[in-house]
C-alpha cells in the first residue's frame, strides 16, 4: 500500500501534498489544548495496532485500521496518520518522502469520510447496529484507500493500469479482515466506553 519515491508523476505528488496539507490544517484546528494528549496517545495506539500481523494463507498482512481511526479521531485522523507515516518512512524506510502527501491522503481521507458518515449512526444505534457499521467502516475505508492508490498510479501513467487493478484485488482479503476486527473493536468500545464515539475524542471532565 505504501507507494515509493520515483513512481508517481510530479502533478500527482504536488496535488497529494497540497490536499494533505489542507487536511492536516483542518485536523489541527480541531485539536484544542484539551485534546492534544488524547490525540497523541490514540495516535500511538493506532501505530502499535498497525504492527499486528494477521495470517492470510501462507503470507500475512498488517492491520491498517484507518476506518476505526476515522470513527474515533474524526478530522484529527489526518495529522495522526501523517505522523505515523512520517515515523514509518524516516525510521523504518517504508514508503518515501516525496510521496508522503499522497500516501497520507490515501489513508487519511477514507478515514475521515468513514468517520463523518458512520460515527453518528454508531453513536445512536444499539450493539447490532454498531457491529454492522463498524464492519462497513472497516471494509469501506480499505476499499477507498485501494481506489485512491489505484487512482494515484493511473494518473501517473497508463502503464500502471494493470498494477492498479492488482492492488485492488490483492486487498480484498484485507477488507474482510479489517471489517471483522473493526466490528469487534467498535462493539467492545461501544459497551465499555461509548464516549469515544460521542463526538470529538472525549475529554476528561475537568
Amino acid at each position: 500500500m505504501h507507494i515509493v519515491d520515483g513512481a508517481l508523476s510530479a502533478p500527482v505528488l504536488i496535488a497529494g501534498a497540497a490536499l494533505t496539507a489542507g487536511g492536516i490544517a483542518l485536523g489541527l484546528r480541531q485539536m484544542t489544548l484539551e485534546r492534544i494528549p488524547a490525540a497523541g496517545v490514540l495516535s500511538a495506539a493506532f501505530f502499535v495496532a498497525s504492527l499486528i500481523h494477521v495470517a492470510v494463507g501462507p503470507s500475512s498482512v498488517h492491520l491498517i485500521l484507518n476506518g476505526l481511526a476515522g470513527l474515533i479521531l474524526g478530522w484529527t485522523a489526518f495529522p495522526a496518520l501523517f505522523v505515523a507515516l512520517l515515523l514509518q518512512a524516516v525510521f523504518f524506510g517504508f514508503g518515501g518522502i516525496t510521496v508522503l502527501g499522497v500516501n497520507t491522503l490515501n489513508i487519511a481521507l477514507p478515514a475521515v469520510l468513514v468517520g463523518l458518515a458512520l460515527r453518528p449512526l454508531i453513536a445512536a444505534g444499539g450493539p447490532r447496529a454498531a457491529a454492522l457499521w463498524g464492519a462497513v467502516g472497516g471494509a469501506g475505508a480499505i476499499a477507498l484507500t485501494t481506489l485512491f492508490v489505484a487512482a494515484a498510479l493511473v494518473f501517473s501513467g497508463d502503464a500502471f493500469v494493470p498494477a492498479a487493478k492488482l492492488v485492488f484485488l490483492a486487498h480484498v482479503p484485507v477488507m474482510v479482515i479489517e471489517a471483522a476486527i473493526s466490528a469487534a473493536a467498535v462493539v467492545l468500545i461501544k459497551r465499555v466506553k461509548p464516549d469515544l464515539f460521542a463526538g470529538a475524542p472525549a475529554v476528561a471532565a475537568v
Binding site: 485500521l65 469487534a184 467498535v186 467492545l188
Partner: peptide, 14 residues
Amino acid sequence: SLGYLVGMMLVRAQ
C-alpha cells in the same frame, strides 16, 4: 479476539 484486543487498547489509551 484481535478486534476486542484493539478496542481495549484504544479504551485504555483514552
